[in-house]
Simulated assay, not measured.
Amino acid sequence: MAITTAPGTTGKPGRPAPPYPAGSRHASLGRKLRDNLTGHAFLLGALLCFVVFSWYPMIRGVVMSFQRTRRGETTWVGWDNYARIIHEPSFWAAWKNTFYFTVLALVLGYAVPFLVAILLNEFRHAQGYLRILVYLPVMLPPASALFLFKFYAYDPSDAGLFNAILRALHLPTSEWMQSPGMTMPAMVIASTWMNMGGAVLIYLAALQNIPGDLYEAAELDGAGIWRRIAHVTIPQTRLILALMAMLQIVATMQLFIEPLILANGAGAEDSATSVAYLIYQHGFFQNDLNGAAALGVIMLVALAGFSAVYVRLTSRQD
């Protein structure tokens, strides 16, 4: 009995002929379809997690911000939750504290990791050990690191580390978290120490990609270290600096765990109340989930608007 094969193919006895001739347009499309289906199948799990744990809560929060739930009954109230939240005195105080923390974090928490990365890049020996040393605070749980600051570094008594250093330098001591004027700077110091390890490694990777010829040319022209940083290092890492600035602002605007642990929430004279902590307070202490949702949407819109403007400005510069 003869075995037939598809015209134009070299099919072997006992094997079915391919559905399309080899090298044809249909075979190429079929191969691409199978490859795309395989890739999308691998991405499906991550996509489902993203939808369930990110997009759905976000959409649900937006819907809740226009509703009011009382005794199990939900009614649509429109913009009433937003009007009520905006007219609360704590709303504007929380935004003021959050902006103040963000500005201080940009001055200290944004500049210090970049300078530390420049110093590490200049070392020729023990770079691996120094990187581990810088990244070590990131590996600590945030709560543990903040309790370390609260009960050891910021202790207002003579046992406090920072007050001991100030006394050794013959400088006046501080009450730190008990002082309204020192609450935000103290939280910025703790936050910078906890989180700068990751930023240092990112900056260090960008610095090591700068061609050494540029520094050699700058040295031949008589440029000192500060001129080399200003005219070689910063221009060559401009894109990374811009990205890290945006991420820094978005992260610091969501200030929550620092006031919760270091200042017990509001702090002295409400000097530590942030927008994120105010959301927590409305949702879990006042049982006002709709007001908390409205606050969350306001923060979402503010951060999304800032990110859009920032990306537009930086893209024009590029």
Rank of each mutant, 00 (worst) to 15 (best):
A2I: 14
P7R: 06
T9A: 02
P13N: 07
G14S: 13
Y20R: 10
H26Q: 15
L29S: 08
K32N: 04
L33H: 11
N36V: 06
H40S: 15
A41N: 06
F42H: 09
L47R: 08
S54F: 13
R60I: 09
R60H: 15
V62S: 07
V63H: 10
V63Q: 13
T69Y: 01
T74S: 04
T74I: 04
W79I: 13
I85T: 07
F91R: 00
A94G: 08
A94P: 03
Y100A: 13
F101M: 12
F101T: 10
Q127V: 13
Y129K: 10
L136S: 13
V138I: 01
P141T: 14
P142I: 14
A143K: 00
F149C: 06
F151Q: 08
P156G: 06
S157W: 06
G160M: 08
L161T: 15
F162S: 10
F162N: 09
I165V: 15
L166C: 10
T173I: 00
M177E: 10
A186N: 11
V188M: 07
I189W: 05
M194I: 13
G197A: 01
G197V: 00
N209T: 10
G212I: 02
L214D: 01
L214K: 04
D221L: 05
W226I: 14
W226Q: 09
V232W: 12
T233P: 03
I234H: 02
P235T: 05
L239S: 14
M244E: 07
A245Q: 08
A245H: 03
L247F: 12
A268D: 10
E269M: 09
S271L: 06
V275T: 05
H282Q: 15
F284P: 08
N290H: 11
L295C: 11
G296Q: 03
M299V: 05
A302G: 01
A302L: 08
